[in-house]
Nucleic acid binder design. Sequence first.
DNA 1: AGATTGAACGATTTGTTGAATATTCAGAAA
DNA 2: TTTCTGAATATTCAACAAATCGTTCAATCT
Lengths: 204, 204
Amino acid sequence: MSGKDTVRGKIVEAAKKRFSHFGYSKTTMAEVASDCAMSPGNLYRFFPGKLDIAEAIATEDFEGHLDSLRKLALAPGKSAPQRLRDLLFEELRRTYHKLEKDPRAYEMATVIAHERPEFANWMLAKERTILVNLLEDAERGGELRCADKEHVAEMIQSATMKFRYPQLWSKLSLPALERELDGVLKLMINGVCPNAAANKPAAA
Amino acid sequence: MSGKDTVRGKIVEAAKKRFSHFGYSKTTMAEVASDCAMSPGNLYRFFPGKLDIAEAIATEDFEGHLDSLRKLALAPGKSAPQRLRDLLFEELRRTYHKLEKDPRAYEMATVIAHERPEFANWMLAKERTILVNLLEDAERGGELRCADKEHVAEMIQSATMKFRYPQLWSKLSLPALERELDGVLKLMINGVCPNAAANKPAAA
DNA sequence: AGATTGAACGATTTGTTGAATATTCAGAAA
DNA sequence: TTTCTGAATATTCAACAAATCGTTCAATCT
């Protein structure tokens, strides 16, 4: 936690409770302020606006998520493909469960994504550095070798984009999504056909 | 064309003109009916509702698109990866240009996608059979060999999902999108690293 | 001074009403 | 009978008013 004893931290905690109980749009700045025993106006000494409080909450939450991704990315005793798999599965499960059993959090994510598109890019970029770390580690271990890891990481994110956007999940269950992600991963790791021997156009 | 001389065809033609001139929501059933010199009520003998007229137009249009995809998928004198690339690029360009210079058609696509989710699935399935054809042809030509082509086609679609949904394109230009699609394709065709020699877990 | 307040302001949302429009159907026309 | 009509009905939309809420800031407190 960034600091529950600071004023800013108190505000974030109060807002977190309200947002997860009643939803983002149904909680007012006045309510959050009163929970902190202060006036609405005073909130603005700590945050530019309501959305920024939500962003702070989301950032804190995402930071924790990043921690578990980092652990998975560098877990000892596992092959690089396996770690990549674990990482992307964790990502999928997190998104799925947020949608399933925490519609409030999902509302917040939606509002932020809509109002602050750069936030989604920031998250992708953060996650990408973890992917790059994984690729670098895999290269050190002799598991693979590729020139531009930043680029490869970006392409992995691009190819798995579907699993980050519940709107694209047309009613699919989590197991179904996992099977699909598994298939995409196999495609990425092995290429279209593991047994293919024929023409490989030079990688640009 | 399904038949410009049939009554149904006349309705589709009239609606197409209206929809592309003024947009789907701004054209009324009464107008379409009057263009066909008939009463509003009579439209319902040929279509269950307004949306179904839009769907008929979209279907007709998509059928044409499928034709050009089929040509690209089986174009002689080109490698399978090249044909796959051509096909997916064509798909991307079509979507992009619809968004760019044909906001009316884009409105229709949005309404249909929202109101008739199964239509999008139908389009994906149609396109998938073309991908399967391409894979089968590639196998005949000895370019690749894989067990479940239907499955591989599904995974290709999954990995390129981003390029079908403009909402995910955060302001990217067409060339930028093309570069990205190119990267994803290379990943799928060659695997994460073309030079990788190490562990390949058995494909399930 | 710096921190805090709470009333005032403007933007957004909500509720409501009337008009516009999709859809239906009893009957007319063929 | 089959095809079509057009007025009747149900739904959706747009515009306006009222209320709510995010945000600001001059005044107050410490």
